[in-house]
Write a protein that binds this DNA or RNA. Sequence first.
DNA 1: AAAAATACCAAACGTTTGTTTGGTATTTTT
DNA 2: AAAAATACCAAACAAACGTTTGGTATTTTT
Lengths: 188, 188
Amino acid sequence: MIKETPKKGEQSIIVNSLKLFRQQSFHNTSMEDIAKNCGMLKGSLYHYFKSKEDLMCKVIAFVHEYFKAEVFIHAYNDKLTAKQKIKKLCDASELIFFDKKTGKLYGNIGVESALVVPEFNPIIREFFQDFFNAVKHIYKEKYGEKIANELAERSVAEVEGSIMLARIFNDKSYIINTHKRIIARLEK
Amino acid sequence: MIKETPKKGEQSIIVNSLKLFRQQSFHNTSMEDIAKNCGMLKGSLYHYFKSKEDLMCKVIAFVHEYFKAEVFIHAYNDKLTAKQKIKKLCDASELIFFDKKTGKLYGNIGVESALVVPEFNPIIREFFQDFFNAVKHIYKEKYGEKIANELAERSVAEVEGSIMLARIFNDKSYIINTHKRIIARLEK
DNA sequence: AAAAATACCAAACGTTTGTTTGGTATTTTT
DNA sequence: AAAAATACCAAACAAACGTTTGGTATTTTT
């Protein structure tokens, strides 16, 4: 018998939800949207998640793990120079925010909902803490503790702000220019 | 006869809505919330606004005008030096984002909803265009067209990013530090 | 092989929410 | 003074949404 059913199970629901949340935001995605995308009924989702917020939390955690494994990790690869590290980090995050197929620009799903659903706040903090630590770790190769700290804080703010502007004006170059500047700060 | 009724009329509804939208965001504020705050029934709101989105658009426009009159305007006061201008601009916006009474931190209501409600996008763009122009106008006193442009883009991104971080970590210093840096770029 | 857990379906529930309708005082215009 | 516009009230509506319940195959465990 050939199984042609869409992948199910918790993990696949999370991935499908992530896709929808990225495309249409948390508030504009209903449990029915998600269920349909998974080939099941919305009530069935409650077999895996106790609420929509619970699902979202697990989606954010998934994204967090993804960033750790695919983006932040480059900061700790000691085979690279500081400049190479930051470059890899920027490239990897561009791959996430720019959809090469559709040309669409995505934001950080957590950020946008963290300010509206207090429940998400703690996990978003963890995400940014890791983001900050990764960037700081790179700058510390070239700068002292205090300056590295300031540069990291500034870089994270600049990146997040430029992602927002990029989405509002539908123009990637805000992000690309910010990345260039961040890399330049490590230039010899 | 003494009139003790809460102020009504379109303008006062807008101001009341702004207060609620700032405190609880667009999605977490219902028409009933707004009506109650105005001392009327929610149906009555439709005498002034044809939808919740229409109301929000007018609230955003109100904020935009407020920023023009109280914040951006300092960029064009030619009695001030560039440094004085940017300083006034930063001070004025801090007055808006920090609630001295409650200690609460507010965000830019439009930004957070523009990414969720496409209808708001054009008016938010106008807001940022004016913001950008004001900052650029200041930097042009010291730098050439191209650098002023880049510095303005960067400053706006940094400010917006730091507002976001400030709210997520509930810590004003992100904004304060960013303002300091922006001012420092005009130091002799 | 029996028991238990898993992975759903089908349907309904209850609440919230934005919006509409019809009417009535009050104010403004003519 | 009559007519028209304004500023609401009171009530209902309709749709969407997250969630619950009860049940049934299927798979896993014992």
